[in-house]
Simulated scan of single mutants.
Amino acid sequence: MRTPSDRPLRTDAARNRAAIVAAAQRAFAEHGLRVPFDEIARRAEVGEATVHRRFPDRESLIAAAFGDKMRAYADAAAEALAAPDAWQGFCGYVRRVCAMQSGDRGFADLLTITFAAANPAVEDLEHQRNTGYRDWLKIVRRAKAAGRLRPDFHPDDLVVLLMANAGVIAATAGEAPDAWRRHVEYLLQAFAADHTETLPAPPPRETLVRALQRTQRP
């Protein structure tokens, strides 16, 4: 038996839904995931009640807006893991994730947000995110085993990189939107195994996650 959410949408309802998702994608990219529903409704040219009717909670809207991007994130990790050269796979993955972040302020939020809603779209988003993260751990181990990545690199160092990258992106977006690329290349060189100076231990992951979330706020 079909539930109401399984039934095909009327043409006008489907059009409204597509407009809401497109408006949310633009708003999240510009301002992060905390954009108010009334702003998304204004951009979509629908009433706020229509947004809530189509998406009863923020997580459902986030899942609809970021489904394709999260699959791209998981695919990037899988491709990096399959790269013939472990170090090139590592570097290529870091570059791709930072490129995703450069065009979308909400993306880094998405990597650290905790979802409470339980529906198929949210569950798929979490599955893709978790799959990408597990592959990232393998990417790090593989690059270390190849002797190319410094042994004290920690997987959560990527969170610190994204925080730093967020600052560069925010400061240079209007005048030098590609400045982040040079910053990332500097850091990749620092991650290489021939840099042998010992690093301090990384902070606890939960503190990094909270810090990253703060850097993404408008």
Rank of each mutant, 00 (worst) to 15 (best):
R26P: 01
R26V: 00
E30R: 15
A41N: 00
R17Y: 06
L33M: 11
I20M: 03
R26N: 02
R10S: 15
I20W: 03
A14Q: 13
I20A: 01
A22W: 11
F37A: 08
R17W: 04
L9E: 03
V21A: 05
P36F: 12
T11P: 05
A29K: 11
R26K: 12
A23Q: 06
D38E: 12
G32Q: 03
F28S: 02
T11S: 15
F28T: 05
A18D: 15
H31A: 13
R17D: 04
G32N: 05
A14R: 12
L9T: 09
A27W: 13
A14D: 09
L9D: 01
T11D: 15
A29Y: 09
A18S: 14
R34V: 06
D12F: 06
L9A: 05
G32S: 04
A19M: 06
L33I: 13
N16P: 11
A41Q: 01
R34H: 14
E30V: 08
A14F: 04
I20R: 07
R34M: 12
I40K: 00
R17A: 02
L9K: 00
T11L: 14
T11R: 15
I40D: 00
A24S: 09
A18H: 12
R34L: 13
A13H: 08
F37H: 10
R26I: 00
V21E: 07
V35S: 08
A41I: 00
I20L: 04
A18Q: 15
L33P: 02
Q25R: 15
A13C: 06
A29H: 10
A24D: 07
G32M: 05
E30W: 11
R34C: 10
A22V: 10
I40Y: 02
E39T: 03
H31F: 12
R17I: 00
D12K: 14
A24W: 03
F37T: 08
L33K: 08
R34Q: 13
A14I: 03
D12H: 12
T11K: 14
A41G: 01
A19I: 01
